[in-house]
Design a protein around this nucleic acid. Structure first.
Lengths: 145, 145
DNA sequence: TATTGTTATACTCTATAACTATA
DNA sequence: TATAGTTATAGAGTATAACAATA
């Protein structure tokens, strides 16, 4: 009989946490798409509109934030613009640049979208305030880089 | 001076946690797609293959797990099957049903995919074991329903 | 009749490459 | 020449509706 080799695997606990996060991701994603659909938006449109509800951005910057190619942004902004939720403005400083900006209606939709995200109610409601605080701090540390 | 009104809004802290989870979701999603791409898989293909690496499933059940329409599953399984990662088997108990199952190669790819998910290393590595334990328990409670 | 899986269709998202207008 | 945005193209995911085989 040989003693079992002491393999240093990437950590059982870490894998378990990763799986749990995977489950949270799946649920969040599903509920985000649902909330978007209730506003007749796709997920990508909802994400872009939410970004623009904070501040106008050049098309290029939008692509970076959405982690996609600039050519995609053209179509998504096109669809939102045709619905009057977003508009393109010239950049006075550089005539090559177009600034995408949410319209007043766009900002309203973004606000409504944010509030209709069920995720805030169901899964988080089960936690006490202390637990939510603890969760907040752990998530902050995770994302701190 | 009037005392500040005691408005009971949907909870500032909860919104903050939801935003943090949104950030985690975005990062997890991006890194999952990246890991899938390294194996020449799309995200949807990777998710389906991961499900099948645990157990064979009827097409219908796969659609439910992936939260999409059954008609979509046909195409995703087609593409995985043409690469020899998945196969369709008859269900002895019900001849209408087709069981999708990962091949040996498919299970290997699923294992490699799981291990290549950077997410386990970078963001979680910053947490101590105690913190990972605390995070695990909080996530479990969140998902408990 | 109801259910399983598929096909047909249309739309959106996606990356790549080529184009235009500015810089 | 380099950059910002667009267009063209092709592949993949998605939902809807209609269909064949089986229950």
């Amino acid at each position: 009989m040989t003693t079992p080799p002491k393999i240093h695997r990437p950590d059982e606990l870490t894998f378990e946490v990763v799986d749990l996060i995977g489950a949270v991701v799946a649920r969040y994603h599903a509920e985000y798409e649902e909330a978007a659909a209730e506003h007749t938006l796709t997920g990508a449109q909802a994400r872009l509109l939410s970004l623009l509800s904070l501040e106008p951005l050049p098309m290029r910057k939008l692509a970076q934030r959405l982690r996609c190619e600039p050519s995609n942004v053209t179509g998504i902004v096109d669809r939102l613009e045709s619905r009057g939720l977003v508009e393109r403005r010239p950049d006075p400083a550089d005539r090559r640049v177009k600034l995408a900006a949410a319209t007043e209606e766009g900002r309203q939709v973004a606000r409504s979208l944010r509030e209709s995200l069920r995720f805030a109610r169901e899964p988080l409601a089960g936690l006490s305030e202390d637990e939510r605080l603890a969760l907040r701090d752990l998530l902050r540390r995770m994302l701190a880089d």
